[in-house]
Structure formats: structure tokens, C-alpha cells
Amino acid sequence: MEFKVVQKELELQSRGWIPTFHDVSKEVCEIVEASGVKNGTCCVASHHTTCSVMVQECSHDIDSFDLEYLQHDLLDIMRKMIPDFAEEHQYRHPGPIHAQFGRFVNEPGDYTSMNTDGHLRSVFFGRSETLTIKDGKLDGGEFAHIYFIDWDHVRARRRQLNVTVMGTTEDIESRKWNGGKVIDTKRKYTEEEKAEMEQFWLQQKR
């Protein structure tokens, strides 16, 4: 059985001033199909510490901010948890040493480090997603789309998304566990748990 690994990088342009949601579903699906992997996994990972990857339904409706409604709902929730960096010293980060480091690596100004909200949102949301490949297709469910989220909105920037496809180029056996029998996850009480307590009998005798 042949095992194969394919890696590709997607180059994206974020707009700044507001977090950017990139729908990369088409590109990731094309990479999977071109890889020749029939059964395995596809990892979609951000190259950046202020970005995330999300697998979610496309909500179709788009508002005046060029965001799908579901995306803007998510952004509203994240803003309640982690407010936009709107004024100096709102967060501890960045400190003076970090600002000095920014100048050392030729950042255009101290303002580019005022993206603490983006870092914290990325930590909460995660930087990658892994999907299953079945018979040469991504198994994301009926409505799943893959989004690359750039939470850093202090400036427009070029971003990179890494896609790693791993798996076999051959067919596999049946995927059905235990013949496809539905798993019963309801609580099952032991005989001891079901036994009546003495206090119940006393109440009945009153």
C-alpha cells in the first residue's frame, strides 16, 4: 500500500481595518484531488500567530462589511470576549522590549504590534483544522466550508496557509465500525444504582 504526502502553500491578501475571512474551500479541495490520495487526512494550518482556520457552514448572506452573517456573528462574540485593540495600554502586550524588537525586524511602526486582540483570538480559536479524506474527497459534511481567518486588522498584509495531505492512494476496507450498529450512549444504571433506598420504603409505610 503506497503512502503519500503532499504539501502546498496558499498565498492570501488580507485587507486590514477589520478581520478578514478567506473562503479557501475550492483551493483545498483542488489540492486534495490533485494529490492522488484516496483515503487519509488533510491538515489546513495557519503560518501566522494571529490567524485561525475554521470549518463551518457558509451562511450565504453578506453584509456591508463584506462578511457572511455567520462570520459577523462570530466576530461579534469574539469582540465581547476579546475587545478590539482600540487604545494604547489597553492590554499588557506589547511592552517596550517587544516594541524594540519590532523596530529591529524593520516593522513600519509600533502600531503594527498593537494586535494583541488578534493573538488572543487565535489562541482561543486555534490555528488549524484536520479533515478526513474518503475516496479522494474531503469529508467535511454536506455544508462545510474551510475559512482562513486573519484576526490582525492593523494593516493589510500578505498571508500564507499551509495544506498537508497524507494518506494512501489505494482503496480501503469497509469504514463501518461494528457493522454500522448505532452506538447507544445513554446512561445505563447498575443494579445497585437501581435498587430502592430504605428511606423510600419508610415513606411508603407512613
Rank of each mutant, 00 (worst) to 15 (best):
E33K: 15
R79Q: 14
V24K: 02
S122P: 03
M81G: 05
L67S: 01
D61F: 10
R92G: 15
L70D: 12
R92M: 14
G126Y: 07
V37P: 04
D84S: 07
M78S: 09
V37H: 06
H22S: 07
P96R: 02
D63C: 01
M81I: 15
T41V: 15
A99F: 09
R92W: 13
S46I: 02
L75H: 10
C43W: 08
E33Q: 14
V24I: 11
T50F: 00
I31V: 15
C43M: 15
Y69S: 08
Q56H: 14
L74H: 08
G40T: 04
M114E: 07
G95S: 07
C43R: 15
K38N: 06
L75P: 08
I31F: 13
N39Y: 07
L70V: 11
K80A: 10
H60E: 11
C42F: 02
V24T: 01
S59K: 01
F21H: 11
H93L: 13
A45C: 10
P96D: 08
F125T: 11
R121L: 05
T20M: 01
T20G: 03
R127H: 13
L70S: 14
V123P: 00
V105N: 01
F101E: 12
H89L: 13
Y111Q: 06
H89K: 15
F101I: 13
G95F: 08
Y111L: 05
H89N: 15
E107T: 07
I82R: 04
P83A: 04
S128P: 01
N106I: 02
Q56R: 11
T20Q: 05
V28N: 08
M78Y: 10
A99K: 15
R127A: 12
Y111E: 10
C29T: 10
E88A: 11
S59H: 00
E107P: 02
C29Y: 11
D117I: 02
C43V: 13
V28K: 08
I82Q: 05
K26W: 09
E33M: 09
K80G: 07
D110K: 13
A86T: 15
Y111S: 07
C29Q: 14
T116C: 09
E87Q: 10
M54K: 13
E68L: 04
M54T: 09
V53H: 03
V55G: 06
P108I: 02
P96N: 04
S52T: 05
T116G: 00
P108C: 03
F104L: 12
H47R: 09
D61P: 00
Q71D: 12
F101H: 10
D63G: 03
V53M: 01
N115K: 01
H60V: 12
E27F: 05
V55Q: 06
T116V: 02
E68W: 04
S52K: 04
H48A: 00
L120Y: 06
H72F: 09
